[in-house]
Design a protein around this nucleic acid. Structure first.
Length: 211
DNA sequence: ATACAGAGGTGTTCC
DNA sequence: TGGAACACCTCTGTA
């Protein structure tokens, strides 16, 4: 018999797939858009998506996304949590992706199309980006099909459905990979693709718009 | 009203 | 070497 989630999936599948199609269109985004998507993922932890989004809009102003001085970034982050740390992360991230000629190139620096490798690269090279947000970023630029985005809502649902025994607010890298594997198996078992399952559990947990 | 926990994690420190 | 404890700092909901 079908898993209860499967029924929810059938109901929401259209909406979920439309959202994923949006993410895949990111392949046609400009370098600035992609970089700002990365910034969004740096700002999001422990903050409201809306606040992070508003800060990104400010950073975009006047085409200055690539030229803000570090001290000018801080005041643009009002509303996001830990702005001191995060303004530093945003600045550092930009310099990681700066070419010798001064241009910013994000995608071409990632070891794609291997998504897990790309994620490792991001976690290692972009300070402030952990497993969860690196996965989030890759999905948002259309390369997250094999990755789970294990935020607190998804973890709570996985726990509820018995996929994991316990859930902690913070996961070690090892635990993250283990849970991701369990979720992958669960996804196969109930016949819902991993990336759709991720959005499904997210929306199931929050009843909210996907981001 | 004022206080206080908790919020769509991650880095650092310490052992 | 890896994991537990703590810092980061501000806004919001709740009592």
């Amino acid at each position: 018999m079908a898993h209860p989630l499967k029924a929810v999936h059938l109901k929401k599948r259209k909406e979920i797939r439309a959202r994923l199609a949006d993410f895949r269109k990111a392949g046609r985004l400009s370098e600035e858009d992609i970089f700002l998507e990365l910034v969004f993922c740096l700002l999001t932890p422990q903050s409201r998506a809306r606040a992070a989004d508003a800060a990104v809009t400010r950073l975009r102003q006047g085409g200055r996304a690539f030229s803000w001085a570090i001290e000018d970034i801080r005041p643009l982050l009002v509303g996001v949590r830990f702005p001191n740390n995060k303004s530093r992360f945003v600045f550092l991230a930009r310099e990681v992706f700066r070419n010798p000629d001064g241009a910013i190139e994000v995608k071409s620096r990632l070891p794609l199309p291997e998504q897990k490798k790309a994620r490792e690269w991001l976690v290692k090279n972009v300070k402030g980006l952990g497993m969860k947000e690196a996965s989030h970023f890759l999905r948002n630029i259309g390369h997250g099909g094999e990755l789970a985005i294990l935020d607190v809502h998804v973890l709570r649902r996985l726990h509820r459905f018995g996929v994991i025994e316990k859930f902690d607010q913070t996961l070690s890298r090892k635990e993250y990979l283990e849970i991701e594997e369990k979720m992958r198996k669960f996804s196969g078992k109930i016949g819902v693709p991993l990336e759709e399952l991720d959005l499904l559990l997210w929306s199931d947990g929050t009843g909210e718009i996907f981001k």
